[in-house]
Simulated scan of single mutants.
Amino acid sequence: MTLEINGIVAGYGGEPVLHGIDLAVGVGELVAVLGASGSGKTTLLRVVAGLHRPDAGTVHLGGDDVTGLAPERRRVGLVPQEGALFAHLTVARNIGFGLVPPGLARLRRPAGARASARARVEEMLELVGLTDKADRMPHQLSGGERRRVALARALAPRPQVVLLDEPFSALDSGLREQVRGEVVEALRAAGGTAVLITHDRREALSVSDRVAVLHAGRLEQTAEPRELYAGPATARVAGFVGDAALLPATAAGDRVRTVLGPALRRPGVTPDGSVLAVLRPEQLRITDADGPEGRPGTVERVEFVGDALLVTAQPDGGPAVRVRAEPGAGWRAGDRCRLYTDGPVHVVPVP
């Protein structure tokens, strides 16, 4: 099911938090909304879920305008940050909670409806790999298992769209990657259309089909992860989605010149003249001080990150840059070196 957000303006007490948000999510697509705290991510999620009425704009699901519909009529599944499982219900009953009517209507359901609900719960248990834990209570599960139960509960009523509100933020880094992979795999298997709210750039880039960068209530850029990383539209996006040195540069035609020397310019729409060159650590090279290429400089700091060294070095007459070097390289603070770029350089307008 498609999701279309058009011109959404929303806020609290007359102060807008979102300023004209436009975003489209295709059938079966996973789009990550990436932004820092206070950027408006949660407000956007609440508008889509029907928990917050926008001041202007519309929300369409499958072509139908649902802006004025109550949350329970939208068929939107929500996976909150903490999972929010019912502590007094088993895993199976948590998953099946949204499949049964409340109160006395639950007791009056025909046998066929009850059997259908049980089959759907079993299907969801298998999907998230928790068939053997159907009778466990939430406190008997690991953090990752609770996240999978929350996803299964959101998927059980067959929602049109699933919204995930930073569901992995409370997990430690190792477990976060594992659970994230399991949850995304389950979403893909279910063919769900999904929106992931996150402040973690690695998370956004690694699991989504497209990433929408939100800043101060405005969408700055929406693109596929590789394009967003390689071709950010602004200096702010460049720094937010990855480590980057932003060097003053002059662009002319297919060439760009920085303090590190001339280089090919990555194709783009930025006009000629004064620009900023976006240099990722993997685009830079560092060699011995007597090497034939590059600009002389001095190593300021070296960080060992397991599979590489991150070397911070300052070219003579320019700002410091970070270079990704081989883990066995012997660079030390104070070493003289030479620095140069490798491959086409992307440029953005000067703010």
Rank of each mutant, 00 (worst) to 15 (best):
T258R: 07
P262T: 13
G294L: 03
L276P: 03
G291S: 14
R280N: 03
D254K: 01
E303L: 15
V275E: 00
P271R: 02
L276D: 00
F304C: 07
G291P: 07
D288E: 10
R265L: 01
R266Y: 12
P267L: 15
V269I: 08
G268S: 14
G268F: 12
L284T: 08
V269T: 14
I286G: 08
R265Q: 01
P262K: 13
E293D: 14
Q283L: 14
D254C: 00
P281F: 11
G291D: 02
R265C: 02
L279F: 06
G261N: 05
T270S: 08
L260Y: 01
V275D: 00
D288G: 11
L276H: 10
E282P: 09
G261Q: 05
P296S: 12
G261C: 03
T298H: 05
V299G: 01
P281M: 11
A263N: 03
D254T: 03
D272Q: 06
P262W: 15
E303C: 13
V269C: 04
V256R: 00
V275F: 09
R301F: 10
D288I: 00
R265Y: 08
L284C: 09
D288Y: 02
E303R: 15
T287W: 00
R301N: 06
P281D: 06
G261F: 13
R285M: 12
R301A: 10
G291M: 08
Q283A: 15
V302L: 07
V269N: 09
Q283V: 13
A277K: 11
R301Q: 10
P267A: 15
R295T: 12
A289R: 11
T287D: 09
P271N: 06
T258N: 04
P296I: 06
L276G: 07
R285H: 13
P281K: 13
A263M: 06
T270L: 06
A277E: 01
L260F: 02
G261L: 04
E282K: 12
V302F: 08
L284I: 07
G294S: 05
T258E: 00
P267N: 15
T298Q: 11
R301I: 04
L276Y: 05
A263H: 09
G294W: 09
P262V: 09
G261D: 00
R266E: 11
R280W: 02
L279D: 01
P296R: 14
V278K: 06
V299D: 00
S274F: 03
R295A: 14
P292T: 13
L264F: 11
L279S: 08
P271K: 04
V278P: 00
P292Q: 11
R257D: 08
P267C: 15
G297M: 05
V275N: 06
R257P: 01
L276K: 11
T298K: 08
G268Q: 12
R295H: 13
P271Q: 05
R265N: 03
E303P: 08
L276S: 05
R266Q: 15
A277S: 07
G297T: 00
P262E: 15
V299H: 04
V275S: 09
T287V: 10
A289K: 06
P296W: 13
V275I: 05
E293M: 12
D272G: 14
R255F: 03
F304S: 11
R265I: 01
L264C: 07
R255Y: 02
R301D: 09
V278A: 04
I286Y: 09
G291F: 10
L264N: 05
I286S: 10
V302W: 04
